[in-house]
């Protein structure tokens, strides 16, 4: 699958409280959550993300709370994928489970600049920066996670297991 979009760049340790503040967690509606995604850090995020944005961040992206509302809000905001130098582990699992593409690359996270036009080949594990001409390789997901992604999220896999028992 090929994803393309414009880089929206943020820093290190973007935590789930700033991605979606707890005061909005009475809702489970992704569209409603998306309206407040990253609003404390960048009040214009929602507007920028809606036109096929690719979120690019530094290390430890998604640290903090286990709230799945965070990747749900990002996905519903229109963000096509998240590239980070590293991800916090709960966020990583949540993103895989709900089908938000995430890519880990220190080099890409460092070199991509705000507004760069990117093209991601998920199958090849490649990020192309069309603005600078650079290409970054991303290590592939382990086979089991690949399976979850291919089925379109964890629950589809669970359903298959339940039906086969």
């Amino acid at each position: 699958m090929i994803i393309s979009g414009k880089a929206l760049k943020y820093g290190d340790n973007i935590d789930t409280d700033v991605i979606i503040p707890a005061r909005y967690l009475t809702s489970t509606d992704p569209a409603e959550l998306a309206q407040h995604c990253l609003e404390g850090l960048d009040p214009t995020f929602c507007e920028k993300a809606s036109s096929a944005g690719i979120l690019v961040a530094g290390k430890n992206f998604g640290c903090g709370s286990s709230r799945e509302h965070a990747p749900l809000a990002i996905k519903a905001s229109g963000v096509k994928a998240v590239i980070a130098a590293s991800f916090a582990r709960i966020f990583y699992r949540n993103a895989v489970n709900i089908g938000l593409p995430i890519l880990e690359s220190e080099e890409a996270a460092e070199k991509i600049k705000e507004g760069d036009q990117l093209e991601i080949d998920l199958d090849k594990g490649e990020i192309k920066n069309l603005t600078s001409g650079e290409t970054f390789k991303v290590s592939p997901f382990p086979p089991f996670l690949q399976e979850i992604i291919e089925r379109g999220g964890l629950m589809n896999l669970v359903k298959e297991k339940v039906n086969s028992r």
Binding site: E68, N97, M155, V162
Partner: peptide, 14 residues
Amino acid sequence: TGMGSTDIAASWVL
């Protein structure tokens, strides 16, 4: 350890 809601839902079933 902490996980998200979908992981927990899956564990409740399996």
